[in-house]
Structures are given as C-alpha cells and as structure tokens.
Write a protein that binds this DNA or RNA. Structure first.
Lengths: 206, 206
DNA sequence: CAGTAACTATACTTTGAAGTATATACATCA
DNA sequence: TGATGTATATACTTCAAAGTATAGTTACTG
C-alpha cells in the first residue's frame, strides 16, 4: 500500500464506496491516510488549498476518521512531511554521509513517489508554518556539499550561495523532468545526473 | 513612490497614522496600494497567507479603501502580479527578443524590487489559481532560449526539459543570492551571470 | 465657500472549512 | 455469539477572514 510500493496510481478511494466495517488496523490505516494525504496535499497545491474533505475522499474514509488518527489538520500535515522528509533523507544520506550515488538515489525516490517530492519541494518549502522541515533538509544537503566546494570555490562569501544553488539545481532538474511527463525514462537518471554534475562544476569554479 | 523608485524601504504606513483626508488621486493611490500589496503578499507568504488587513496596514489605509480600487482580493492580487510580471518581462525582453544583456537586466530588476521577484517566483508560481501568469512568463523565456539550445542539444526529447531547467536556474541563482542577504553586491551581477552561463552550457551539451 | 471626491470608523452579513458530539452499523476474534 | 473497536452518518459549533452597508470627516478645487 502506498506510493512506495507499486500501486495506488489513481485516486481510487477504496473497493466499495460505502459501508464496510473494519478494514485496517490502527497502524495500517494511519499509513494509508498518510498515503492519501500525500497525494491530496500534493495535487491540490499544499496545505491551505487542501481540505480535510479532499484527504478523506482520497483515503476513501469519512472526515471523522482522520481525527481518530491525528489531532488536527496541521498534525496530519506534519506527519506527511515527516515521513516524506525521512524517506528523502535516507535516499540522500547513507551512514551519515552522501556519496556518489546520493543524487541517483534521490532521483529514484522521486520517480517512485512524485507526489511526495512535489509536496516537499514545490509546496511545503514555501509555506511559512512548515518550511522549517524542508529548510533543514536543504541545509543538511548543502552541508554535505560544502567540503567539496571549498576545494574549488575561491571566494569565501560565495560558498554558501554555491551550496544552496547546487541543492536547488538538483531539485529543479528532477522537478522539470517530472513536470515534462518523465520522458525517456531509460536514460533519465543518467542524463539528469550528468547535467547536474556539469552544472555544479561550472558554478563552483566560476 | 514604490519599489521601482528608491524609497519605501520599511513598512512605514504613511506619515501620520490617522486622519488626513485626500492625499492621493485615484491613479496614484491605486499604484501605492499595489506597492503595499506587493510587499505584504511577498513577506506574508503569498495569496492565502495574507489578509486584506495586512495589505491595508502596509498601505496605511483602511480596508474599505482597497475595495474602492479593486473588486476583490483576487482582483487586487492579479493587479499586483500583472504589474510585476510586466516589469519582469520588459527587463528580459526588448524589442521582442532576448539579448546577451537580458539576464543582467533581470538581475537588476530583482535587486531593485526583491519583494516582487520573490512573490512571482516563490509564491505565485505555485498557486493553482494564479500560476498561469507566471507559467506564461517562463514559457516565454524558455521559447527564447530554445533556438540557441537546438544547436547544442542533440536529443529531441530533452530540449523542452533543458529550456525549462535553464529558466529555473536563472531564477534560483538570483533567489539564492537574495536569500543569502545579497552579499558582495559589487560583483554580484557578474558572478551570477557567469555562473548561469556555465551551468547552462554544461546542461545543454550533456 | 460650497461641492465633490477621498478617506475614516464602525458595525454588520456571509462563507468555507476546521473541529466536536453523539448515535448507529458492521467486522472480526476470542 | 457476543464484546470490542473500526467505521459511518448527520448535525452541530466555532472561527477567521472576505465582503457589505452606512454615516460621518477632511482635503482639495473651482
């Protein structure tokens, strides 16, 4: 169940539209709600553009149920961002550091769960009340890039800028590919990877 | 008056806090409200995070006045985006085409009115009801870049992606510099310019 | 100095969505 | 088969902010 496993392509609430007693245990239902909420929040356009009715509809559940698992809309949203952020982080960072395959793994994750990727970096990243989570992710990534940059970049004052921009280029390269309809999937990862590398080198050594 | 002319740095409603009869004619007041709204919408975080009370406070005016100049909140917001978008466009495109100085002029405009720049590309660009305007701007820029790219980029399917990403890199490079507190202002334009050029070349010729 | 347009002040209605309450139905499992 | 917990259904309260109405005040203009 959920975007991490190969299913749930459409909105498809659940099998029968009404009445059906206990289907899932607490933990499973909670996860399934987070799945649905990720999709709803991402496709509607972030926190304030998404109502709990939207989420409930996607989950195939009454709005009441949401309150049995989460204290508030904000609480649910944070759960969504937490899970997505964690997955993103574990794609990028292994054993406490980023390696040559980090970007490839992030791309892989983004292909698998584009809703989560878009939600994090297109929407939540701009929301005053929630961007903290995403900013931290970015800071973490930038920090890992920094040491490498300091070898190449000469001017002290531009190191931070270079690190931030590098992170954004990775994100935007993936986003643009998702938005373009994920063309040429065979070579996509490779292509994006090489483009990012080239761009980053160019920027760092200006 | 307004971000395009050197003043209005602070929130500073207007000279005296209460009572002061007719100050501005219709046209001037309208422009001044758009100035204030640009600032308010940008700093509060976009359309839905900004109330008309916020705008009125920055403008140093009653909320009623806003309704004398605009039919609704959405109407005001569109006026704000229209004006900002127009200025941005005229910075980028001269005599119907982009030249070697286009990026430099966009940077210049962004430095002059960072609120407008952020509002357009950080917030409005992600808002379902308003992103159309900004998407068009981006499409326009991408279209101007395309011909150049087609010389370099081999694979047909990746031209669109390259054009989009190029546009985003220009935007993000400027944004990152604004967010970093506009360091090293002397060489900023030059530095950003060279970085963008390098990155774009790297991406196009992957 | 009179008239008009710009503005203030205050109070009101409307709206959409969050959050609450309670009674009922059905599935599962001991 | 009946106790337990998951879910439905419906109706309600609350709240923030948009939008409306109206009466009064001050500045500028002819």
């Amino acid at each position: 169940m959920g975007p991490m496993t190969p299913d749930s392509a459409g909105p498809a609430p659940h099998s029968s539209s009404t009445r059906g007693g206990r289907r899932l245990g607490r933990a499973e239902r909670r996860e399934q709600i987070i799945d649905a909420a990720t999709q709803a929040f991402s496709r509607e356009g972030g926190y304030s553009h998404t109502s709990l009715d939207d989420v409930a509809a996607v989950a195939g559940v009454t709005r009441m149920i949401l309150y049995r698992h989460f204290n508030s809309k904000a609480d649910l949203y944070e759960a969504v961002l937490d899970r997505a952020g964690e997955r993103m982080y574990h794609a990028a960072v292994v054993d406490g550091e980023m390696d040559d395959d980090s970007v490839a793994r992030v791309i892989h994750w983004a292909r698998e769960d584009p809703d989560a990727f878009r939600l994090l970096f297109r929407f939540a990243a701009q929301e005053p009340d929630f961007r903290g989570e995403i900013d931290q992710l970015k800071v973490g990534m930038s920090a890992h890039i920094r040491p490498y940059l300091e070898e190449v970049t000469t001017d002290e004052r531009w190191v931070e800028w270079t690190a931030q921009l590098t992170t954004m280029i990775v994100i935007e390269a993936i986003m643009a590919w998702l938005d373009a309809g994920q063309p040429d999937p065979e070579h996509a990862t490779d292509r994006i990877l090489r483009a990012v590398e080239g761009a980053v080198n160019a920027i760092a050594s200006v």
